[in-house]
Design a protein around this nucleic acid. Structure first.
Length: 301
DNA sequence: CGTTTTTGACCAGCGC
DNA sequence: GCGCTGGTCAAAAACG
């Protein structure tokens, strides 16, 4: 539908040690690929709020010269459905415009387009159905997207935000359906899609679109987390309360035990999110780095 | 009873 | 123009 995303993340697949991107015309509208794996790229991802564990993440050193667009791919490994997110950083992509939203979505205020969000408005405006609004006239404008792949047995990875599922669709060339989620915050227009890789069913592809305009809400359904406090305390506000050493600690290889201890998302935090410096990865501080890979549209102005 | 999920229908964009 | 596909809506069901 819309802008025909040939950039569908589902076309990205992986093998044990390498990633290959499917035929993808990244030149179109807003799809970019950002490979992780190298310190440099990990840093980039970190700026998006995600940690990339160097040992559990594998990326092809694919033709990076082709990188362009708005989707970045990362691979993390999680058996519990919790996403590893980097600590909030004042140098996140959103910069001053997004000081309060260290979030998994692309922190891009430049391409943030409130007007587009007629569809995304969580509370459906009774008078004018959003889809009718965009029906004729303007083309739907896609917000920058950030996708990554996670080895996980659960589809919907916990990321600290609350999501409401609003659709599910079978996708072509994939035995797995794609689920569509919207941030439950009525003012937040962030959406995300979750699907399993058709190539590797253990890999969950999560695509975020948009930018949160709020802090994390803690953990849904009984979850705690005074994220404000956590945030101010420089704990990862959007990180799962579960800490996965195998994922988070570069010096520690993911033990089979740690990778299989849990196969479902438990909403109840069992222990306080005592996190080490959630940014074991070097945090980039220069715009030059971003400017190198991340297009201006993905960054704050 | 409020919130979330499910699911069929609808719509838009694209290729042929 | 038609069919295909992806994305969204919205009513009903399920859940807590």
């Amino acid at each position: 539908m819309d802008d025909k995303e040939r950039s569908d993340p589902g076309t990205c697949f992986t093998t044990d040690s390498s990633w290959t991107l499917g035929d993808r015309d990244a030149a179109d509208e807003s799809v970019n690929f950002l490979f992780g794996g190298s310190d440099r790229e990990s840093s980039i991802l970190s700026q998006f709020g995600w940690n990339l564990h160097p040992e559990t993440s594998s990326f092809a050193d694919h033709d990076r010269s082709d990188l362009a667009g708005n989707i970045s791919y990362g691979l993390t490994e999680s058996s519990t459905g919790a996403l590893q997110q980097a600590a909030p950083t004042t140098t996140n992509l959103a910069g001053s415009a997004d000081v309060s939203t260290p979030n998994p979505s692309v922190s891009s205020s430049s391409s943030e387009d409130p007007t587009e969000k007629s569809t995304g408005s969580g509370g459906k405006p009774p008078e004018i159905p959003s889809k009718l609004v965009r029906k004729k006239g303007q083309k739907r404008i896609r917000q920058p997207r950030f996708a990554f792949m996670t080895k996980s047995e659960v589809d919907h990875l916990e990321d600290g935000y609350r999501w409401r599922k609003y659709g599910q669709k079978a996708v072509k060339n994939s035995p797995f359906p794609r689920s569509y989620y919207r941030c439950t915050n009525s003012k937040c227009t962030v959406k995300k899609r979750v699907e399993r890789s058709s190539e590797d069913s253990t890999v969950v592809i999560t695509t975020y679109e948009g930018q949160h305009c709020h802090h994390t809400v803690g953990f849904p359904r009984g979850g705690v987390l005074n994220h404000e406090a956590a945030f101010s305390g420089h704990l990862s506000p959007a990180i799962s309360p579960y800490y996965y050493p195998g994922i988070h600690m570069p010096q520690e290889s993911p033990s089979p035990a740690s990778m299989t201890q849990s196969h479902h998302v438990t909403q109840e935090p069992r222990e306080p999110p005592i996190l080490p410096d959630p940014t074991p990865l070097r945090m980039p501080t220069d715009d030059g780095l971003l400017g190198d890979i991340v297009p201006p549209g993905m960054r704050s102005r």
